[in-house]
């Protein structure tokens, strides 16, 4: 019965629960941001201080998360790594978002050759498995975070463009846009003041969810030796370092992994909550 009679129930849980989801997710993400910003003051040790005498020490009162193969404090490295991993989320999402939104706006509003070109380009990008294409570009340009961001921008913008284009096309013929056109506003004003604010909601929710994928991809690249380079503390790099010592010292891998999951969870539920909030507003 319920399948048809209350389709909304699936997409919109009770308001209170939704706000709780967003709140908890926001606290997790906010917590990581605070840790990252104040890392030098919060972390108990220097993340790169080598202490061979205490290498591979198990978690204890001195080293809560233990130490790695050259005696660096894992807790301090996890906290400092948050800086790199959060920057990855932002620098990996923002350029594709900005390029894609601009192209999508113009393509959706004006249509024509640009639009056709964009859609063919989308077909082409979709033909490549995302991870493979980014990996190949980074491998060719050379390992490192900067090249990772360049590759993401090259590949990722098309998805954003397509998303914005679809939104703009559904808005383009609405009455308030026609009204703005009748009042003689320039295209620039209509696009920036009227189309853009209404098309941006879904893009923002998608961007937050996308940042989970980008962070996981960044950590994977660090793990494969294609992203952040050692001795930089980055969660994926730390897991890669620790994997050689997994038999003697599980803690080197365990804690950066848990850190990745917690930030990933925070971002995923934040994105999901924001998406639902928007759907609720649309249906209200």
């Amino acid at each position: 019965m319920s399948i048809v009679t209350q389709p909304q129930a699936t997409e919109a849980p009770a308001r209170g629960r939704l706000n709780w989801t967003i709140l908890v997710a926001g606290v997790i993400v906010g917590g990581w941001i605070v840790l990252a910003v104040f890392a030098p003051w919060i972390a108990p040790y220097d993340p790169n201080a080598v202490d061979i005498l205490h290498a591979l020490a198990a978690p204890s009162a001195d080293h809560w998360f233990g130490t790695d193969q050259v005696g660096r404090d894992v807790l301090s490295r996890v906290i400092h790594a948050a800086r790199i991993d959060l920057v990855m989320c932002i620098a990996g999402v923002l350029p594709p978002l900005l390029i894609g939104t601009t192209v999508g706006l113009l393509s959706g509003y004006y249509g024509g050759v640009v639009d056709t070109l964009l859609m063919r380009l989308y077909d082409l990008t979709a033909a490549f498995p995302f991870f493979v294409l980014v990996l190949a570009i980074v491998g060719i340009l050379g390992p490192g975070l900067l090249n990772f961001f360049i590759a993401l921008a090259l590949v990722g913008w098309v998805t954003y463009a397509r998303l914005v284009r679809a939104e703009v096309m559904s808005i383009r013929d609405s009455e308030y846009i026609q009204a703005a056109q009748c009042l003689g506003y320039s295209d620039r004003v209509i696009l920036t003041r009227h189309v853009m604010p209404n098309a941006f909601g879904p893009v923002l929710a998608y961007a937050v969810s996308d940042s989970v994928l980008v962070m996981l991809a960044g950590a994977s690249f660090g793990f494969l030796g294609m992203g952040a380079q050692p001795p930089t503390a980055e969660w994926g790099v730390m897991i890669s370092d620790g994997s050689a010592f997994i038999r003697q010292a599980w803690w080197i891998c365990m804690f950066p992994g848990l850190a990745t999951i917690s930030l990933g969870l925070g971002l995923a539920f934040l994105g999901d909550g924001l998406g639902q909030l928007r759907r609720r507003q649309v249906s209200a």
Partner: peptide
Amino acid sequence: IAGMAIPVFW
């Protein structure tokens, strides 16, 4: 949703 946040290599 939670499953998507797990790094597969870890």
